[in-house]
């Protein structure tokens, strides 16, 4: 199996007296989708923030591709190949869909310090951007202003930008949120194929998607991971049923 691509080792984070994450360890291995589930307020977003670099853990370490990235900022981690999609879409809303995808391609190229020549006419950037848009089915909307996209289409654009980075791992924070049934199924099928390119750490509330996709599931409750394992083990786990799945059913 080899070393995990991404590994979180004993990470804790408190905000004042509130312990959002307590001694969390999990890893993401090549070729897998590892789903992180848990009720609202369990600390999923805090953990994702620490993995992506927006927050620094109080203790513990985060390793990515064998390198300690605990103290690197989000831009550095993205450069190393960690692509994330946001729970609340973070997009350049005034720009076109294509421009947002171009931004990803620009980041993948590793530098934005070219002051001449139109970005839209850069064949290399454009090809990468359009390819990613076509993979998520947004190519026909490329010329639209991003603010005019539906909620679901914005999620697709988030994924497209992540694709342009040709990352070594994806961290996706509720990519299905706000998608209709058809949209969810479509994205589920897409992510299913994507794991072959790079493993995905998937935070998701849509349980159908989680059980359809995940190779392993970690359950986060009150800032602690109470179980990690394959879908069947998680489904059968009494603690998980009591803490989480039971509440949903």
């Amino acid at each position: 199996m080899g070393d995990p691509i991404l590994s979180v080792q004993g990470v804790s984070k408190s905000f004042g007296a509130l312990a959002a994450n307590r001694d969390i360890s999990l890893d993401l291995r090549a070729g897998e989708i590892h789903a992180l589930i848990g009720p609202n307020g369990a600390g999923k977003s805090t953990l994702i923030q620490q993995i992506a670099g927006g927050l620094r853990p109080d203790s513990g370490r985060i390793r990515f591709l064998g390198q300690d990235v605990t103290h690197l900022g989000p831009a550095r981690r993205a450069k190393l190949g960690l692509a994330r999609s946001f729970q609340v879409s973070a997009l350049a809303m005034e720009d076109t869909v294509l421009q947002n995808a171009l931004l990803g391609a620009l980041g993948a190229r590793g530098g934005a310090y070219r002051f001449f020549g139109a970005a839209l006419k850069d064949a290399g950037l454009r090809q990468a951007a359009e390819e990613a848009l076509s993979r998520v089915g947004l190519l026909d909307k490329a010329a639209l202003q991003t603010a005019t996209l539906s909620h679901g289409e914005r999620r697709q654009l988030e994924v497209a930008i992540a694709l342009t980075l040709r990352p070594k791992a994806f961290v996706m924070d509720e990519p299905m949120a706000g998608l209709g049934t058809a949209g969810s199924q479509q994205l589920t099928a897409f992510l299913d194929g994507l794991r072959a390119e790079a493993p995905i750490l998937l935070v998701e509330h849509d349980m159908d998607a989680v059980f359809a996709l995940a190779d392993r599931i970690s359950v986060l409750v009150y800032g602690q991971i109470i179980a990690t394992g394959p879908c069947d083990d998680i489904r059968a786990n009494p603690d998980v049923r009591r803490a989480y799945l039971g509440e949903e059913a």
């Binding site: 993205a78 450069k79 720009d95 931004l103 070219r114 970005a119 980075l165």
Partner: peptide, 22 residues
């Protein structure tokens, strides 16, 4: 230019720009 695209995006969403490694 590519620089203008990135700068313009940073104005609208700094988190997005960081997430692509800039």
């Amino acid at each position: 230019s590519p620089f203008g695209l990135a700068l313009n995006a940073a104005r609208q969403s700094a988190a997005r720009v960081q997430a692509v490694g800039l």
